[in-house]
Every structure is written in structure tokens, then in C-alpha cells.
């Protein structure tokens, strides 16, 4: 893995999860094989003890945060909405998520739906393109070396920075929002796919060659599954950055969704609603990430 990981591919070394567990996993597997009993039970009890502490500490942090917030809203800045007020606002929105009183007043369920829909379309399109390019670059070192500098430059540009140019070019805010998500979804997936494909064990490709697999069969039955864990690691990061980008994109473009909601409430000085929206954006982001965690687990393999 290390021999062919190009130093220029800086994202991937941080982003890519090696398809197999590596040396540590091997060692664990060996330990397990030699002496399953004690090793497992020791790990089990340790895990339980850590697990308990973790929950208590986590709960404590939450309470501390709420207490500080409550205190700030009572003695620090009395205009700042307290947790209780925000909870009331949240309840107001969440109790009736799907209503429609015209374009500027829609249920929060719809707003989340719009943002997720935009995310899904842009992310899917970006991912398909990124995986395709990643496979091509992963299989062709020359092409990879030639294009990598540009990828690094493009990757460093915030997708929001493209917005004026995109808006000027496509002349449509809806398309621009999608394109921003598309751009935000590309780079980690592209880099990770190229990395994963490039690091597929030679022996798997040899098997594919001996079986005389046509290119498409080789890509779908050997290369993509082989690079699967690395690709999903990239998709996961891409999803995160797309979700991060979608909020300012919607806010600036006035595209109906969570980002627009935040900005709109700010303009109305509805700070409680702003806080509620911030929390909701975080919660949706975490759920999306959990989805990818599942996908990653289902594609993981040990060799």
C-alpha cells in the first residue's frame, strides 16, 4: 500500500481507509486465532467499562452546554433565546412538518426534503463522475500524474467560490445550487477511488486476466469491489462536504431549503429559529454519515 501511494495524493493518505485492516488487524486476527478465549473476554470487559464512561461523560457535556447556554441567555444577553425557547420553537416546527402556505412559508419537513433532494441529485451525479474518473486515473499512472496537479488545485477551491461564475454561466439559481453540490461531491471520492484502484492487489488483476474478463466485467466484479472500502471512505467525506456546502449555497441563491431557512430567519431576526435550524442541519448531517457508515461496513473485507 505504501509503495505506490504517491506523496502528491495528499488527500487520499488522510482520507483513504485501506481496504484491509493492515498490520494491526492482522495482528488482532492472529491473536484471536491463537487464543480466542482470554483475548476476547478481556477486550469485552474493557469495552464495557469504556462504553459506560463514554455515555456519562457525553451526557455531562450536553448538560454543561445547556447550563452555560441557559446562563448566557438569562444574565449574559437577555435577548438570546434560552434552550427552552428554542425547544418550544423546535416543537412548533416539528409538530407540523408538512404544511404549505406559499413559497416563503413551508413546513420544515419540506425544507429538509428540498435540501436532501438537492443533495441527492448533486451528490449522485458528482459521485458517478468522480468514481468513473477515479477508476480511469487509478488504472493509468500517466494520466493520473498528468491530471493530479489540476485535481489538487480544484480540490482546494471552496465550492461556494464557484458560485458567481456558475450563476453567471448557467443563469439559473436552481442549477447553480445543484452544480455547487456536484463540485463539493467530486474531489474526495475522485482521489480515494484513484488511490483504491491503484492499490488493488496485483494478484486480483492477474486472476481477472487469466479468466479473460472483458473490461466491464473486470471493473464491476474485481476493481470496484476491490476498491470499494476506499471509495466509500471517499463518498463519506464527499457527502459531508456537500452537506456543508449546501447551506451557504441555498442561503446565497435563495433556493428553498434548510440553508435558505436559516438566512431567512436571520433576516427576520428569528434567532430561536436560526438556532433550531443549525441543530437540525447538524442532526441531518449525522444521519447521513451513519448511512455511509453502514455502507462502509457492508463493503468492508479482510484478506
Amino acid at each position: 500500500m505504501s509503495n505506490s501511494n504517491p506523496s502528491t495524493l495528499s488527500v487520499s493518505s488522510a482520507a483513504a481507509v485501506p481496504p484491509s485492516g493492515g498490520a494491526a488487524a492482522k495482528k488482532r486476527a492472529m491473536l484471536k486465532a491463537v487464543d480466542p478465549g482470554p483475548a476476547r473476554s478481556a477486550a469485552g470487559s474493557l469495552g464495557q467499562r469504556v462504553g459506560g464512561n463514554w455515555m456519562v461523560l457525553s451526557l455531562f457535556c450536553l448538560l454543561l452546554f445547556l447550563a452555560l447556554w441557559q446562563r448566557y441567555s438569562t444574565v449574559g444577553n437577555e435577548k438570546f433565546p434560552s434552550p427552552v425557547v428554542v425547544a418550544e420553537h423546535a416543537w412548533y416546527f416539528l409538530s407540523d412538518p408538512f404544511y404549505d402556505n406559499g413559497p416563503n412559508d413551508q413546513g420544515i419537513g419540506y425544507l429538509v426534503g428540498f435540501s436532501l433532494g438537492r443533495l441527492a441529485v448533486g451528490f449522485l451525479a458528482g459521485s458517478v463522475v468522480a468514481v468513473f474518473l477515479g477508476v480511469v486515473l487509478g488504472l493509468n499512472r500517466t494520466l493520473f500524474k498528468a491530471l493530479n496537479p489540476y485535481i489538487q488545485v480544484l480540490r482546494a477551491i471552496s465550492p461556494i467560490a464557484w458560485m458567481p461564475l456558475l450563476l453567471y454561466t448557467v443563469q439559473n439559481s436552481g442549477w447553480t445550487a445543484l452544480l455547487v453540490v456536484f463540485m463539493a461531491s467530486m474531489w474526495p471520492t475522485l482521489a480515494n477511488t484513484a488511490f483504491g484502484v491503484n492499490n488493488i492487489k496485483k494478484e486480483y488483476l492477474n486472476v481477472a486476466a487469466i479468466l479473460q474478463m472483458p473490461t466491464l466485467a473486470k471493473v464491476f466484479r474485481v476493481i470496484l469491489p476491490g476498491a470499494g472500502p476506499a471509495i466509500v471512505a471517499g463518498l463519506r467525506i464527499s457527502m459531508g462536504s456537500a452537506w456543508v456546502a449546501i447551506v451557504p449555497a441555498e442561503a446565497l441563491l435563495g433556493s428553498l431549503g434548510l440553508g435558505y431557512f436559516v438566512w431567512n430567519e436571520w433576516n427576520n431576526l428569528g434567532i430561536a429559529n436560526v438556532i433550531f435550524a443549525i441543530l437540525l442541519i447538524g442532526a441531518v448531517g449525522v444521519m447521513l454519515d451513519m448511512l455511509f457508515n453502514r455502507l462502509a461496513k457492508s463493503l468492508a473485507y479482510t484478506d
Binding site: E203, N206, V207, A209, I210, L211, P225, G228, Y301
Partner: peptide, 30 residues
């Protein structure tokens, strides 16, 4: 390389993401 000369490798070279059946099916399908 070709299907007329099948190799059995010292380190097995099985696809780790496929089951026993899956590995054999990969070859039969090809």
C-alpha cells in the same frame, strides 16, 4: 493469459469480498 491455463497461486489469490461460492462463480461466469 487465458482460460486454457488456469493458475493456482501459492497465496491463493481469492477475492476476499466473495464467498467460496462467489469465488468459483466468478470463474464459471467468465
Amino acid at each position: 493469459p487465458g482460460l486454457d491455463r488456469m493458475v493456482v497461486f501459492q497465496n491463493f489469490a481469492l477475492m476476499p469480498w466473495l464467498s467460496v461460492q462467489g469465488n468459483i462463480r466468478l470463474a464459471v461466469k467468465a
